[in-house]
């Protein structure tokens, strides 16, 4: 029994020591990136206070460059060179259907941009399309119609956080997007595809997309109404550390 005791306690303490030292290392020194996100980029679950899970996590809400209002469409078109540079094998022929070949996901570095040129460009495009449409007096096809509500939603409520680039080399992305108040380099999962029109990846998820709210900041969220009634808003400073793991540094409510 003595051997089991020593082995077990060693395993338990060593595991926790490694895990916690990773946390300490991640949060040591200056954060690599810091973005001031709002309720547009951080989703608060409704009625979380009544749930049996007393913990509160905010979910990062992001888009892909070129995504538009169709939130579920997260394809990123790439040149063949860029596609192969991510470490994928060439897909010899375009898939006729999703079931022809089941490609697997890979971890790459993603460049996130907050309220930058990508969002502004998308917003301007939408404004222009709405303006052109109203001057054409209803000749636009139904599926392309942009309503005032959709335009307002994009201006005031939709996420301004975009995945604008990806690479399997962190340093090259960090050098290219060096403004750490507008850009963050994070890890994410992508799945490759090839269509007749070319190569691309679907950006499926960020490796860490749920951010736990620490106790000292929790009281701020207790004052929020459910999202569909919400009038007040918040800003949260999100920091990314040495291991690219994020945490919520501060939260501020405002009207």
């Amino acid at each position: 029994m003595k051997h089991y005791l020593i082995a077990g306690l060693t395993l338990l303490f060593l595991t926790n020591a490694v895990a916690l030292s990773g946390v300490v290392y991640n949060r040591s020194g200056e954060p690599l990136f810091e973005l001031m996100l709002s309720e547009r980029e951080l989703t608060v679950p409704n009625y979380w206070a009544r749930s049996e899970n007393s913990g509160l996590s905010l979910r990062l809400n992001w888009r892909v460059k070129g995504q538009g209002e169709n939130k579920w469409y997260r394809d990123f078109h790439l040149s063949k060179e860029k596609f192969l540079s991510l470490g994928f094998d060439d897909i010899e022929k375009p898939a006729q259907s999703n079931w022809e070949r089941f490609e697997t996901e890979k971890v790459v570095y993603l460049a996130l941009e907050l309220n930058g040129p990508t969002y502004q460009s998308a917003l301007n495009k939408m404004r222009q399309a709405y303006k052109n449409q109203t001057s054409l007096n209803g000749s636009t096809k139904d599926r392309d119609v942009i309503t005032k509500a959709q335009l307002d939603n994009f201006k005031f409520k939709s996420s301004r956080l975009y995945v604008v680039d990806l690479s399997d080399d962190f340093d090259s992305l960090a050098d290219k997007y060096s403004d750490s108040s507008m850009y963050a380099i994070v890890k994410g999962l992508v799945k490759p595809y090839r269509l007749e029109s070319g190569y691309g990846v679907s950006v499926n998820t960020l490796l860490v997309s749920n951010l736990s709210v620490p106790l000292e900041l929790r009281s701020q969220f207790e004052m929020l109404e459910p999202s569909y009634e919400r009038k007040n808003k918040f800003n949260a400073l999100i920091s990314w550390g040495q291991r690219l793991e994020p945490w919520i540094a501060s939260v501020e409510l405002h009207e």
Partner: peptide, 29 residues
């Protein structure tokens, strides 16, 4: 629960090493 919750509390990147550790502890017990 120990490893799962530490991961959630500190937003740690998920890793397959947790399965190795759980296996080791499971075998021990």
């Amino acid at each position: 629960l120990n490893l799962t919750m530490l991961g959630q509390i500190f937003n740690i990147t998920p890793s397959d090493n947790a399965f190795l550790i759980w296996a080791a502890y499971g075998f021990l017990l």
